[in-house]
Write a protein that binds this DNA or RNA. Structure first.
Lengths: 206, 206
DNA sequence: GTCTATACGGTGATAGAC
DNA sequence: GTCTATCACCGTATAGAC
């Protein structure tokens, strides 16, 4: 161990991330986290009091990564609309690429326990009204579509970005015969595919 | 109890579905399943030997619903291509609507334990090579696109269909301010939105 | 701060009566 | 087939020595 006493906390958190994201809250074992951190169980409780407290740390951090520059994407009016969508997709995909298991983790835990969200929003200082009004006031207007269409637009973009990651076990086996390399190539093409699809959809038909 | 002895098994299975789909394998408790079925724990083991065996029943059934008429959609050449896509989306969405929690359940369990798939394919008699070659040989040709583009097409359709359900806890709160009715309306519009988007994307640009 | 030892409540599974 | 009682184990959490 090169790390000195003080970053024991960081070591534990990293181990907790690995285990919780792989196994989920219910599937994770404090013993496994301790092993992965190279310490023992008692120390976990010394630093984080309980399993649930430790989980909250990991989960909320993961959830934060999920709110990418959604607001940023929409708030900055510097670029033309389509360029901003492109920037958003690129940014979002790169975040997911760096944390490929976070989306499935967050989705799993959130579906088991949706109430967690309320307290998260409060404590993270996120105003959902603001986000939703931005969609109406900025996206809808700039794209020249209705409020409802703007919501579909946002959901479509996020869906197409995230799904190849959360559905990877299934897609990779069925469509790619478990060829990991082919699948990675496929993922690299996503940005272009999504951006072009969205751009085309925003053009008035002719 | 009106049910006679023989459908105890069905009662148990239904209770197991409810609990496993809500809590996942790790989060589910045999006691809770027994309670929900109105019987006691011992009987669960009498009928299904172990928690894992019972889970497999539920999980595989759920997984089957996930392979919608993917093959059907592609195999039948009766309808013109775009009509077939429309039929597929409609059919797929109605399956999900009837089982709205299945996608998140399957995705969660599959990401925790991807190896389960191999044995499932074998036992369900699913030939993944066939599915993947259908995508190349039928979709790509009829749509006049490359093999790789055909794969993106399939993934996009499924992504846009499933995501509003697995991401519901998040989307509903952020974009719809927890307005359930509004969200249901939104879901009803999905078929039209997806079909039109895909149709537009398949048109040669002008 | 870090360890070992242990308490204590569950949890899956089985034995055995009816 | 269905129940009650019980076992063996595991998992979180804490006590207490160093």
């Amino acid at each position: 161990m090169v790390d000195d006493k003080l970053d024991t906390e960081k070591t534990i958190l990293q181990a907790a991330r690995n285990v919780f994201i792989r196994k989920g809250l219910d599937g994770a074992r404090m013993q496994e986290i301790a092993d992965e951190a190279g310490i023992n169980k008692a120390l976990l409780h010394y630093y984080f009091r309980s399993k649930d407290k430790l989980f909250q740390m990991v989960f909320r951090e993961a959830l934060s990564k999920f709110f990418p520059s959604l607001v940023t994407m929409l708030a900055t009016k510097d670029l033309p609309f389509e360029k901003r969508i492109e920037a958003f997709v690129e940014n979002y995909l790169s975040i997911i690429r760096d944390n490929p298991f976070i989306p499935a983790f967050v989705i799993s835990e959130l579906n088991k326990n949706p109430e967690q969200l309320s307290s998260f929003f409060v404590e993270a200082g996120i105003d959902t009204k603001k986000v939703s009004s931005i969609i109406k006031d900025i996206i809808a207007k700039e794209a020249g579509i209705s409020d409802q269409e703007a919501r579909h637009l946002v959901v479509n973009i996020i869906a197409m970005s995230i799904f190849p990651f959360v559905g990877r076990p299934l897609i990779e086996r069925i469509i790619f015969q478990s060829d990991k390399e082919e699948y990675d190539k496929f993922l690299e093409q996503r940005k272009k595919v999504i951006v072009e699809l969205i751009a085309k959809s925003l053009k008035k038909s002719c």
